[in-house]
Design a protein around this nucleic acid. Structure first.
Length: 424
RNA sequence: GGAGGCGUCGCCUAGUUAGGUCUAUGGCGCCCGCCUGCUAAGCGGGUUGAGGGCUUCAACCCUCUCGUGGGUUCAAAUCCCACCGCCUCCGCCA
């Protein structure tokens, strides 16, 4: 069930939003036509149905003489009702189909353009000058191999390209990062959740991952299940078909799960190491809130991300992503890009999206407000994507001998201050 | 995987064996009122939810809702089919 209020609100701003994304404005007109058809069909059907019910009562009470005549009438009516019912369900299906293809309207002040038109909002920290320190920075894979932390060769042997094993201190590092991330999230009031990474099509579609990004998703046809690319999917669908208590908003969840990505469009890109892999583990933040609070909640999530990255001593930039690169569900998106010394540039480590009411409408998540029932807003944000964060930590904290200094906050969880190359 | 049982309006529950004011029973809980110095008890009333219409609000009207989706029928909580979920037992397994 889709909340039909969506397209009655303001067709003009929907058209503008479509323009901003470089998407078809005609879709909006089609939607409006489909909605009118749908409403008309429903009204006709409901009226007929009322008639039919009334007639049913008459038949039940009818005397033996009047019964046959009434029955004949009722029979005719039943056919009309059936036809109207079919028309209604077709009109509904058409409307839903169109609505599911409509991306979330982008906020007006989002930078226009595509992948390269992001705005840099902030730069935090200063990249180390390795030349001045007298040595050349190793990349994360070289360091990982020296430390006995990353094994790509056997990853490829066992599972194929873009798979890895984290070994020894590598495994310990991920576990420590996980513990640290979870402890911070809990401290900030997020309810920790370990969530399924296989979900039904309704969950995948509801979160907006079966649109343009469908080719990036693993699908298990034998079971009609999808492997999630982020725990956002399970966390969003968690409250699907529910009416939440507005008093309890915002609801803040932290999800931990493996994430699977086919990386279909990225052949030959970032093939070295664990930067771009088919599977990684991630601690994710997810928030349900009142629509009018979504921008404030978004800012909070971004602050949490910044605070987490900064606490690990990684120089980074905060970007606001441009309209054409937002994906289907986001009305606004901020990415944090961490410094990668071996590449001499900033690369994505976190991403937070304000999906406003988009996912809530598709997943039928509402709340009971003072003035009635309506959709909530949903937001998500990366707290710690393990592989990317491991890269950042290894490269930014490396020493000339190939050892890596463990960032202060991780030490209690890792039980050591420095990772040293293994003798063998 | 095999066998059996069960899904009713917050919770429990009647109704399903002969389909028809079921326009869903009763209890608990909750809400309002009465009573009371206060509380409890007692008494009276209300209470499934969603969508839409109308509307200042309220009232009122219509549709849908008995796990979900189909089917049979003039008419389905009730009959038929499929699916989903839960429980018990067996097998297998972490």
């Amino acid at each position: 069930m889709i909340d039909p209020k969506l397209i009655r609100t303001d067709p003009d701003s929907l058209r503008a939003a479509q323009r901003a994304r470089g998407e078809s404005e005609g879709l909006v007109d089609e939607l409006i036509t489909a909605d009118e058809a749908r409403r008309g069909a429903i009204a006709r059907f409901e009226a007929l149905r009322a008639q039919q019910k009334d007639m049913g009562r008459q038949v039940a009470r009818a005397s033996a003489e009047s019964r046959p005549g009434l029955l004949a009438q009722a029979k005719d009516l039943a056919e009309t009702v059936k036809a109207a019912e079919q028309e209604t369900s077709q009109a509904e299906a058409r409307f839903t189909e169109l609505l599911m293809t409509l991306p979330n309207p982008v906020f007006d002040d989002v930078p226009q353009g595509g992948e390269d038109d992001f705005h840099v909002l902030q730069t935090v920290g200063t990249p180390r000058d390795f030349a001045a320190e007298g040595f050349e920075a190793r990349d994360h894979l070289e360091l990982g191999e020296l430390l006995g932390a990353i094994d790509m060769d056997r990853g490829a042997k066992v599972s194929g390209s873009r798979f890895y094993f984290l070994t020894g201190v590598g495994a310990l590092l991920e576990l420590a990062l996980t513990q640290y991330a979870v402890s911070r999230a809990v401290e900030w009031g997020f309810n920790p959740m370990i969530v399924p990474s296989l979900v039904k099509p309704s969950a995948m579609d509801g979160t907006g991952f079966l649109g343009q990004s469908a080719q990036d998703v693993y699908y298990l046809p034998a079971d009609d299940l999808y492997l999630v690319g982020t725990s956002e999917v399970a966390l969003a669908a968690y409250h699907s078909d529910e009416i939440l208590d507005a008093e309890k908003l915002p609801l803040r969840y932290m999800g931990y799960s493996p994430c699977f990505r086919r990386e279909a469009g990225s052949y030959g890109k970032d093939t070295r190491g664990i930067f771009r892999v088919h599977w990684f583990d991630k601690v994710e933040m997810f928030v349900y809130c009142r629509p009018e609070d979504s921008e404030a909640e978004h800012a909070k999530i971004l602050d949490f991300e910044k605070s987490f990255i900064e606490s690990l001593g990684i120089p980074f930039q905060v970007l606001e992503v441009a309209s054409g690169d937002l994906g289907m569900s986001a009305a606004r998106k901020y990415d944090c890009y961490g410094w990668v010394p071996s590449q001499q540039r900033y690369r994505e480590i976190t991403s937070t999206s304000n999906c406003t009411q988009f996912q809530a409408r598709r997943l039928n998540i509402r709340a009971r407000y003072e003035d009635g029932v309506g959709p909530v807003a949903t937001l998500n944000g990366t707290l710690c994507a393990m592989t990317r964060m491991i890269i950042m930590i290894l490269e930014n904290n490396q020493n000339p001998d190939g050892s890596v200094t463990v960032p202060e906050p991780l030490r209690p969880f890792l039980g050591r201050e420095v990772l040293t190359p293994s003798a063998g």
